[in-house]
Design a protein around this nucleic acid. Sequence first.
DNA 1: GTCTATATAGTGATAGAC
DNA 2: GTCTATCACTATATAGAC
Lengths: 202, 202
Amino acid sequence: MTTEEQILQTAEKLFLEKGFAMTSTTEIAKEVGCNQALVHYYYRTKENLFLQVFMQKVRLFITAFTEKSGANDDFFERLEKRICAHANMMEQNPNLPFLIMNELILNKKRRCMIRDYIVDNPMVRDIYYEFDKEIKDEIAKGVIKPIDTLDLLLNVLSLNVFIFVSAPIYTDILGRTDKEKQAYIAHRKKLVVQTILNSLKS
Amino acid sequence: MTTEEQILQTAEKLFLEKGFAMTSTTEIAKEVGCNQALVHYYYRTKENLFLQVFMQKVRLFITAFTEKSGANDDFFERLEKRICAHANMMEQNPNLPFLIMNELILNKKRRCMIRDYIVDNPMVRDIYYEFDKEIKDEIAKGVIKPIDTLDLLLNVLSLNVFIFVSAPIYTDILGRTDKEKQAYIAHRKKLVVQTILNSLKS
DNA sequence: GTCTATATAGTGATAGAC
DNA sequence: GTCTATCACTATATAGAC
């Protein structure tokens, strides 16, 4: 791996662990084993380096949520698969939801970047409209209780994100082992699906 | 108001807005209209000052959640009142859930402080056990579907906290006015209650 | 109690040697 | 491409004058 790639990879790790503000380019360089000037040689500014990591992660976050599932499943099976795909993506990147939330709340610039990325992205729009149509169909058929599509998405997002935000807190506060933490996550994943489906069934 | 109180109040405001790392004692002093040395004269360290704000807010956060309601309501009415009390507390302190989450995730020291506060606090324990008993009773009576008490609390917490974490993001990304933001919050509050109750009804 | 001044250390970023 | 050296800045915290 080139030094340039090592820097990006280490930056990703540290930004995910401690956020933008609390990670210094000096620290990144130290962990890579090179000089701090080299970080700026490749990426010029810390902000620049951060954005490369951040936007890639935002893309990952969104595409996982909009993942399509088998067409011959019924609605509840399809929804379950979508919820799980989203949770699995976060399980592989545990601090990702926190990083995104953190930066979006503390930094207006980031919110605007996301807006440009989401609202102007035809792919994202298409997937949303398709999902929206699907929901409206199922409501019309009387399969699920009436709900706004955005509300359903927000419910899933709330519950799923909170699994990974709460996991380290829960683990530390109750003095759990890493294995117990994994069990907590697995349990919560199942329960989120169950809660969402129960709230929809009519 | 004394200068000492002004400093504490300004610190509270800025810490809530921008978190610990991005708020400087210089900035606090400037906003109070005094010298930066004075902040340290009264509170010695920034960490100290932060903890005074933080722990007071954590107490507020927990006590709101454990608020008791009218005894002659049925279970669903009592639960609804509890969920609303918790949401209302956050509505009056919009950035509070974010601050708590943020500091707990980024800082292990803070997690340990909370542990000492929650786990060793008999009042908190009592309220939890009482709620737990109540849930188990209703399950036994067949009023609600079986669920672990901690899971129910986590579901409420997830959905409620996310209202206020998502509100500024939602508002900015979709270019909403402040009035529309209030409507979003009011709408989500209702929906959270509905989602939780629907998921419990058997 | 409030100020000025300052010690000390850390930051992001750049210039220039090799 | 990688380094050393350094600049300009900001931060927390303290010492000491008033």
